[in-house]
Design a protein around this nucleic acid. Sequence first.
RNA 1: UCCCCUAUAGCUCAAUGGUAGAGCGGGCGGCUGUUAACCGCCAGGUUGCUGGUUCGAGUCCAGCUGGGGGAGCCA
Length: 523
Amino acid sequence: MADRSRTCVHPQSPPKVVRLCPANLLPKWRKARAPNRQPRKPSALPAPRYLQPMLDLSVADVLSRKEAVVGQRVRLKGWVRTRRDSKAGISFVLLSDGSCFDTVQAVAPAALPNYTSEVLRLTAGCAVEIEGQAVASQGKGQSVEVQADVVRVVGWVEDPDSYPIQPKPHSFEYLREVAHLRPRTNTFGAIGRVRHCLAMAVHRFFHERGFFWIHTPIITGSDCEGAGQMFRVSTLDLANMPRTPQGTIDFSQDFFGRETHLTVSGQLNVETWCMALSKVYTFGPTFRAENSNTSRHLAEFWMIEPEIAFADLAQDAQLAEDLLKFMFRALLEERADDMRFFADRIDKQCITRLEHLISSPFERMDYTDGIRHLEAASSKGKRFDFPLSWGTDLQSEHERYLTEELVGRPVILMNYPKDIKAFYMRMNEDGRTVAAMDILAPGIGEIVGGSQREERLDMLDRRLDEMRLDKHTYSWYRDLRRYGTVPHAGFGLGFERAIVYATGMNNIRDVIPFPRTPKSCEF
RNA sequence: UCCCCUAUAGCUCAAUGGUAGAGCGGGCGGCUGUUAACCGCCAGGUUGCUGGUUCGAGUCCAGCUGGGGGAGCCA
């Protein structure tokens, strides 16, 4: 015994280093001590020094290592989800610390000194530390529970009646209005862990394949990165703007001495590093000031943009397919608990959809063939609101037909007409299409957009002229074609759209911690 | 930005132009190794904002603001 009392267990140590103690010890000293205890303020409850080492564990630790934990004294810290009382003299407290989807049930006996004064007043959201013995549960619904001998209230909920997160289903629209508290719900806890899992999978995928993560700038000096409105970055006094003699705003007096914006894409910058490190990617926030009010758009979102040298469109498409499969495989393996929840409560198909995606090759289809399929469907009676013709961009209804009805899973659409795509995309032999690809996903639409880049300076210049873009603005981009140019390709993957696809959540504002959308930036 | 819908208790929703209701959550009590527990009682409201029609507006009309669905832009 004395030996054990000196066994100091570091909070982060794995439980296997701790020796087991006979389970029948616990009730004895608990009964012996409880009657003599005077009720105290909870936060002042001392940590009892028992004969057994204390394990500081997360809920995930307890639930994932049941056998190793049963019989141990443990200390858990977290927030109360629910409390149920039994007049048999015990209360059941469900504790969550966010380390996994499930909660641990703590059984608090009436003999606790602060039972009536505090335990019976616990409500959803209270922060507590619970110490006790992990035991095999007598009840249904959990295999391990904690027989608490200390319940210490760390933080009360000041007005349980109006606490915004009640133990009941809430609408996502409502939870968006309390975005600072919604991580405490089942759904958003799961979203947070899924986000992390997928982000780590992205980095692992590229790292294992010899890619380098390039930190492309957030602030950009070129306002021509791509289509779309940009957010201005300025330290000028809005109420008193400096003017040039011509009357325009004098950006030479601004912080950077020129007009600057938040980036809408890291692509042009990462291409420069691709031309030296061969395989690179960016993964960071991007900003679009478009007035887009849909369930698929955010003003601030995260994008993954790989760029590969000595590569063509086919290799680019294969990379995108491999990345998506890697991410979703990791998700199913590492966050089975959260995905089970999404399948139960959000989207019954989400797990089988991912399993199907992982196990079958993506459909590849030329834009021209896509148009043919759509025309064939139309002639068979399929109704489209918008007309079809080669050379126009596909409407949402067209994309939806291809990916949802015709193919039933993601489809890679390739080789688009040049006039509907960006200047940097490589001209094909036919002179009328470019080596572009979009991956369309059911329920999402475009999840990936990419292309082989135009590496031939004369062709690039011709495109710049056609689109009436200023060559000076792109001088450094053109330099890449002057000095050791090589064929290269890349794509952009919308991180939140990937999460929407994986979880079946139907609004992109609910898969990012703090959504920024037009007229909405409260938190 | 355009079209359609919508705003009532802490939350989810009821209420023919005529006294503001329920369920859940909260408080109190009962019962129970409970599992979205169950039973009883109690508290809880400037019906989003501004104006209008009417004897009378939660309800009808106009404007504004927020939210949702769809479209465009895109990832």
